[in-house]
């Protein structure tokens, strides 16, 4: 079942002279882990803003084409209603935090959904622990570092356990090990609870291994859409200038340029690449 579907979606910001996204037709199935990537300014963030109705309800502008999210036509439903189904983590955490304490920020969404107090506390603690910020729960979000704020923003969305999580470069300020742990948590939730994940990222070496669907955008259009291993090893992807994982790139160089007979499964992580190398070195 498709949880997000667009047909010829085109959108132009109020003062812009050309559309930020053009003729976008995509289909995201329930339970998928989708990576959206592409050069900066390609329209990734704009597309995410459509998924919870911020576009067009908040940003205004001109929208054409069709888009349904969790079965709802976003044009006919306010953001408040869409928010019950879609949790969005913004690129810049400062745009999303506002409460006087971390705990209150994380609880905010649940409060709005009318969760009973005890259940809410449990869920908030769970999200704070998963993101490693339990000890910050009484601090004011605006006093925290960029990386800590980012974890608060992620915890706020995790706490809601929405059907669909949309994350726009959610860990850009985090150190790599913490970022890796967060992606593992998100992957785990995707796996166990079937939460659909839409992740916008440039750093594919940290994230490609979790995805089972990738969408590459360029200049407002979707240019490639499909299976990650195939797409990341294609020539088109390289020409657009997407930073493919180094393990994938090494595989390509050895196989295509040097004619090494490496296995068929295109690697997305160092472990997968090591396995293939062992096969040719140890025989």
């Amino acid at each position: 079942m498709a949880v997000i579907q667009t047909r010829n979606l085109t959108y132009m910001y109020p003062t812009a002279t050309k559309p930020a996204i053009r003729d976008v037709s995509i289909k995201i199935e329930k339970g998928e882990f989708v990576l959206i990537t592409g050069p900066s300014g390609c329209g990734k963030t704009t597309l995410c803003r459509c998924f919870n109705g911020l576009i067009p309800h908040f940003y205004q502008g001109e929208i054409n084409g069709e888009i349904t999210v969790a079965g709802l036509n976003i044009l006919e439903h306010p953001t408040s209603e869409l928010a019950k189904h879609v949790g969005l983590v913004f690129q810049n955490p400062e745009n999303q935090l506002f409460a006087l304490s971390v705990e209150k920020d994380v609880a905010f969404g649940l409060e709005n959904l009318g969760y009973p107090r005890e259940k809410m506390q449990k869920r908030v603690d769970w999200a704070l622990n998963l993101t490693g910020i339990y000890e910050l729960r009484e601090r004011a979000p605006h006093e925290l570092s960029g990386g800590q704020q980012q974890r608060v923003a992620i915890a706020s969305v995790l706490a809601m356990q929405p059907e669909i999580m949309v994350l726009d470069e959610p860990t850009s300020f985090l150190d790599p090990l913490t970022a890796k742990k967060i992606f593992e948590v998100i992957y785990e939730l995707n796996n166990t609870l079937g939460i659909t994940v839409v992740l916008v990222e440039h750093r594919l070496d940290l994230t490609a291994q979790y995805s089972n669907h990738i969408i590459i955008m360029n200049q407002g259009k979707v240019v490639l859409d499909g299976e990650p291993r195939e797409i990341l090893s294609s020539k088109e992807t390289r020409l657009i200038g997407v930073g493919i994982p180094k393990a994938t790139r090494l595989y390509q160089i050895l196989k295509e340029d040097d004619g090494v007979k490496l296995g068929k499964k295109i690697p997305l992580s160092s472990e997968e690449m090591t396995k293939l190398l062992r096969e040719v070195i140890k025989t």
Binding site: K246, S269, S270, M273, T274
Partner: peptide, 17 residues
């Protein structure tokens, strides 16, 4: 809290060879 670059990871994993 740094994860090594992917190329370095591959070479750690192959260090027994």
């Amino acid at each position: 809290f740094i994860v090594p670059p992917q190329i370095a990871q591959i070479f750690f994993q192959l260090s027994d060879l």
